[in-house]
Each structure stands twice: as C-alpha cells, then as structure tokens.
C-alpha cells in the first residue's frame, strides 16, 4: 500500500484505479470508525465476558490449590485460634466457632475468594487487598478497603468491585440481591458465610458506610458486617451502591464447603440473620 501523489498521466478507465490521498484518508477514517465501534462493544460486553471467565478460572484454580494444600499439610485447628484478645464472645447463634481472622493483606495480595450463588452457581472471584484500579479492581476482581476489618472479624469488612466495564464486573448484579442471599468468602482457613440484608445508595464520598457499624460512628461494633460497594447507576460514577450483609456462620476447612456452595442447594429459606443487639 502506498500513496502515489504524482498526478501526471490520467489513468485509463480500464486500468487499475490510482491510489489517491483522499481515498486513503477516507479508508483510514472508516477503519478508525470501525475500531471505535469495536471498542464500545468491548467496553459494554466483551470485556466482561473475557475478564469474567478469567476471574472465574483463576478463583477456582486457587480454591483447588488451597484444598490440596489443606489435605497434604497438617492444618492447625482453626477453632482454637484466638481472634482479637480484647473482644468478648459474640453470640451468633449458628456459629459455635469463633471464626479465625486473617491478617490484613498487602496491596494487590490475593487473600480470599468470594462466592455469591445468586449471581450464578459458578460465580467465584478472587479478593485482594487495596482498592486501586490498576493493582486490584481491574486486574484481580474484588478489593478490600484498607483499614476495614477482615472476614470474620467483629466490625465491618468492606469491599469494592466494578459493576460495569472492567475487570469482569464482579458486582454487575449487585442490585439483584435478595434478603438472606448467602455471600461466602473462602480463605485458607475456611468459609465465612454472610447473609445479605439491604442496599443503600450513597454519594461517592459517604465514607461512613465503611465504619465498623456502617453509617453509625458512635456505636462500638458488636457484630460482624460485610459491605460491598460499587458504582451506580450502571456505567456511571455519579453515586455508589452499597450492599450490607451480616455474619451468619464460619465453617473450618476441615469441614468442607458450606451447603450453600454445594451443587443443588436445598433451597435455603432461612430466616434473616439475627438483628444486631448492640444498636
């Protein structure tokens, strides 16, 4: 391909058409238009398909790795690990075991896998420390707000993930959560099950949702909460959608995954989680 500016002899009609500057420019513009349309399609649909499948495969791979390590290595009994020393035992009825609390991960360090069966039976996304786009949200999936509590810890364990457009959009269906839907976090220690309670729509600077008791600065934390944040409305960054859940149970690795993660769950119609007492 090349441009032939010399406009000397007029070509005979039957001969090959001359490559003109305008013609090349037009073709380049058409090509650019097609690329822009491809980008829009990628942004809206294809990126989610590609990254979502990658997220899912990586998460399942990690889960298999953990279970393989647990069977080969002698696992410490998770039920005997103490949590915060000053913390009184919290009366959560379904869980007799005080869940172990892992140390807070470094930026971009994968520490867990989130399962939300109501997002699809195969849904599994890796969780890592930090909420930067380049290191966690675009590349790994779900990010843990630094300074908030870890899964199983008394207080608020808060996470962010994309809802549309990037990183597989782990929270694409966050607005479809129903009361009581299980949200399970797997770590090398075991499975932490939370139950969804309610949604809230806030402004982007509403940091109170990250407090140990969300939206309540004065009350000391007495329960275990899980907070998921994403953007709202879809494809915009005008507001944030926040999904609150409360702790339901912990299952140590030796006991295997909880029933809500097994195929064909027996239609969990449990009552909503106990209402917090410290409020």
């Amino acid at each position: 391909m090349g441009v032939s500016p010399p406009g000397g002899a007029p070509t005979s009609g039957r001969e090959r058409r001359r490559v003109s500057v305008v013609g090349v420019a037009g073709e380049l513009l058409l090509t650019a238009g097609v690329i822009v349309l491809l980008f829009v399609a990628w942004q809206l649909w294809i990126s989610d398909i590609i990254s979502g499948a990658q997220n899912n495969a990586r998460a399942h791979e990690l889960a298999q790795q953990w279970s393989a390590e647990a069977t080969t290595d002698p696992t410490p009994d998770a039920s005997e690990e103490p949590t915060e020393p000053t913390e009184p035992p919290v009366p959560t009825e379904p869980a007799e075991i005080v869940p172990p609390v892992a140390p807070e991960p470094g930026d971009g360090e994968v520490f867990g896998i989130m399962y939300i069966p109501s997002f699809g039976p195969d849904y599994a996304v890796q969780m890592a420390g930090g909420v930067s786009r380049s290191r966690t949200l675009d590349t790994i999936g779900i990010g843990h707000y630094p300074g908030t509590q870890m899964p199983g810890e008394v207080g608020n364990s808060a996470y962010a993930a994309h809802r549309t457009g990037y990183g597989g959009s782990p929270f694409y269906r966050i607005a479809e959560l129903r009361v009581g839907d299980p949200i399970v976090i797997e770590t090398p220690d075991g499975w932490y099950t939370y139950r969804f309670r309610n949604l809230e729509y806030v402004k982007p600077w509403a940091v109170n949702v990250l407090h140990p008791v969300p939206q309540d600065i004065s009350t000391p934390a007495g329960e275990r909460y899980l907070t998921l944040t994403s953007c709202s409305p879809k494809h915009t960054a005008i507001e944030r959608i926040v999904a609150y859940s409360s702790f339901d149970s912990f299952q140590p690795r030796a006991d295997g995954p909880p029933a809500v993660l097994l195929p064909e769950p027996p239609a969990p119609t449990e009552t909503p989680t106990p209402v917090k007492e410290a409020a």
């Binding site: 942004q43 990126s47 949200l137 990010g143 457009g165 940091v207 944040t229």
Partner: peptide, 25 residues
C-alpha cells in the same frame, strides 16, 4: 487484529478513557 485490540490495546485505552470509579472516599 481484533483479538489483539480486545486483549491488549483496549484494556490499556480503557484505563485512560473512562474513570469508572467504584471506590467510596
């Protein structure tokens, strides 16, 4: 070409184009 765009080019471009922020604070 389309594959290279989807896998390599667009993810880089996307970082610069739309700051779809999901973080609070």
């Amino acid at each position: 070409i389309v594959w290279a765009l989807f896998v390599y080019v667009f993810p880089l471009v996307g970082l610069w184009l739309t700051p779809a922020d999901v973080v609070i604070g």
